[in-house]
Design a protein around this nucleic acid. Sequence first.
DNA 1: CAGTGGTCTAGACCACATC
DNA 2: ATGTGGTCTAGACCACTGT
Lengths: 257, 257
Amino acid sequence: MGAYPKHRIIADELRNQINAGDFSPANKLPSEADLCKFHRASRTTIRDALKILANEGLLTGESGRGWFVRQRRYLIYRPQTVFRPRAPGLDPKLCRFVADRVAEGRQASQTIEVAIVTPPADVAERLELPPDAVTVVRRRVRTVDGELYYINDSYFPWDLVQGSAITLPNDIVRGANAVLTSLGYEQTKVRDEVFIRMPNPDEAHRLRLGPGTPVGVHVLTGTTVTGKPVRVAVNVLPGDRHVIVWDRERGVAGDGS
Amino acid sequence: MGAYPKHRIIADELRNQINAGDFSPANKLPSEADLCKFHRASRTTIRDALKILANEGLLTGESGRGWFVRQRRYLIYRPQTVFRPRAPGLDPKLCRFVADRVAEGRQASQTIEVAIVTPPADVAERLELPPDAVTVVRRRVRTVDGELYYINDSYFPWDLVQGSAITLPNDIVRGANAVLTSLGYEQTKVRDEVFIRMPNPDEAHRLRLGPGTPVGVHVLTGTTVTGKPVRVAVNVLPGDRHVIVWDRERGVAGDGS
DNA sequence: CAGTGGTCTAGACCACATC
DNA sequence: ATGTGGTCTAGACCACTGT
């Protein structure tokens, strides 16, 4: 084989065909057997090429059906809404997340599960807790228009929220932050961190992710005015379904020439 | 071959060993031949398992040497600096990006290449230009401490910046935004968008990315006070090297209970 | 040189989807 | 029943790394 391996050459060729729209509107590729004949290659080589494209997120193979070009539809994810007051028109019986989607003309739902756990090391560190400290975690999987949207796991130090509505597995209509405020721990500063990586098996399972789908992990750490951390939210967003958007104004620009 | 395929079982086992640190400090796995014997599997099956982990970003194979656990070191990327004035202590002869890294005690450099092109469709759309309009693009690849850091491609409408320093392939020490201001197009609003996906072959090549490394694409659109778009910057950040960080203050929280 | 991963082949059996 | 992708085997040759 030359300097450039055969399965890569085939992958490049197929990628160009995909980008040129050669397989639309059916979005279905020729069968592996046909590709073998056409490219004069063994099935392994053809499959190596297809796997490259699958791991780039361009294709998915469906057992017994064929290989298909993947679709992308982006939903907008706005970390900024954390510091925006609830819009007045929203249905007061719905939690913020669902109410916001309904206002956009979408359908939304979420599952909630509350547990008392010792948090992962990175969460404990952000909450400035010793490694064996206990937290309440509200684990949610959010769905928009019938499609899995993202995971939201919110951790609160147990001694702060003990006995409050945060520990109950229901929607908190007025918002967890209102509860924190009434407990004397108003969240006034926030740090947002976004990590980009491949999902671990647990995340892949919870969000039904195929290969080649990276995730953005938005970690929100909220602190009081004195700097005490009161809440860490870990949001896991499938990359093929989200754009993260911020809007900003004013000031002088200058991000490096 | 139960319901759960053999190569997945082996991949799970290896993943656990990696996370438990079984292969540190050398970070080297047993050879494929040894894994075949140990797991009583063919080389193909072992390699299928290793490829799963490679596509999760956990391993890299090095020809003739072996399989190694991948390292992660995150560098902080702050989109916010766009609206922050240049710190007074910085070396006035360096451009903002390099000067900021030097202030952090790091080494930094960048390559600059300027071209006049018709922009990609998504850039043209954000600049509100017809598809055949011409832009100036400043393409930079930025390096920190000798390691490739990210791609920054900044597009400006040709008729706005024609004849200015923006069209020259040098550092603009006072910053491109200062130039825009002096041309009468001060950038006062910014939209940040972050997409998460696998790199295309061009990006993978420019940033020397191995398989299983997703990228974050930070698209910054700057507009004047009247809403006229004057600049689109496309930043491609390898996920294994970056955290995107925002710090915010004040206001009432409430991102959905 | 021997050992390692990278590529490729030919052939087999299975589960699943479709008709 | 047929065709599809999913998995697995055994064996081969190559380029590269280390000694």
